[in-house]
Design a protein around this nucleic acid. Structure first.
Lengths: 192, 192
DNA sequence: AGAGCCATGTAAGAGGTTACATGATTAG
DNA sequence: CTAATCATGTAACCTCTTACATGGCTCT
């Protein structure tokens, strides 16, 4: 669930300085914001997540009553929340389809919180997707060998097309990850 | 919603010959089946969709009571259901992320129901994604021009990386679509 | 005797979308 | 005068997941 970790991430970024109440966090998830262009979050869901994070003990709320307005609930990262954020930031995603959302959010926060960790994340993500690509390649090769004895004619061609698509998407993600490392430290934050 | 259209598609394939009750359809959505490897559907959801398709007037059920077993509900495509299936099969998907699920399901059924339509679908899908790729390319070019006046330093690099990823995924899908047409008519069903 | 097939579902819960409710203040 | 900003949520409604209930039949 990238949404809740993104909220933890925003609180970790502000840390003391930034307010950290719902309405304020909501701005980051609107269109035009770098984060909002990757992960859109409507107010309803945002408040829902904040309540859940509080139940989990990952954040603590401080309530400031205001005249003529709903009381403002300012959230702060709890130690358990910080630990969870770190754990999440260090884990690469397992599937190619998670690159578009989960991985981009991880990258966004890793870059700002700890550029060295961002560089490590990119490397590990490359290794994970690399293993996936190899596996897909092996399945494709095995398929070309069997040459239709288990499956009816068209099914074989279709199954092979599915594998080729997955491999193509994974390879594209791998190339993009490589580009991330190469275009200076601006993105990953490190020049290794 | 690809699941419901996949059910319509299965009923269209069987048409008269095949049974067309829930338990029977469920087999196609299990692992190892060409369709099941793209779209997994648990029995609970399958029966739910069948009820909904019936409420929509897209399928009609015929109930055959059986001794010592729950009555078997055999479904048949209604004219409205067939029209809806055709409409859906002819529409390419708008986003790259829908290629992995929605488009593959469309391709699966288009190939079997009407190979000529499958060929048209692939061509139109290429055009749609091609326009998307151009748009992404333009956005990227425009970004390189601005060179950080609206966004803080790192945000610019991040936003550019997001666009590059989307472009890479879209280009990979385009290449795959081109491959589909070229590897004989086996996949698209037409040798134009 | 026990496993698995047939054939239908329900129940409970997580996660998400869209729209609305409140009500004072500030900006155009 | 109208619209947007601030600040919180609720309500209704989908979708999906996981697990279970039923109960006879067939295969090993």
């Amino acid at each position: 669930m990238p949404a809740e970790h993104a909220i933890l991430g925003l609180l970790a970024l502000g840390d003391g300085a930034e307010p950290g109440h719902g309405y304020d966090l909501a701005r980051h998830f609107g269109e035009g914001q770098p984060l909002g262009d990757v992960l859109r979050l409507e107010p309803g869901m945002l408040y829902h997540h904040l309540k859940k994070l509080e139940r989990n003990g990952w954040v603590v709320a401080e309530v400031e009553p205001q005249p003529s307005r709903p009381a403002r609930r300012t959230y702060r990262l709890a130690p358990a929340g910080r630990a969870e954020l770190t754990r999440w930031l260090e884990a690469p995603v397992a599937h190619t389809r998670e690159i578009r959302l989960d991985f981009l959010v991880k990258l966004f926060f890793a870059r700002r919180l700890d550029p060295a960790r961002a560089a490590r994340l990119v490397v590990e993500q490359r290794e994970t997707l690399g293993r996936l690509a190899e596996s897909l390649g092996r399945q494709l090769a095995a398929m070309d060998g069997t040459d239709d004895r288990t499956l009816p004619a068209g099914d074989h061609a279709f199954a092979a097309a599915v594998l080729r698509l997955r491999l193509a998407q994974t390879t594209a993600a791998l190339d993009w990850l490589t580009g991330l490392v190469e275009t200076r430290g601006t993105v990953t934050g490190s020049t290794t």
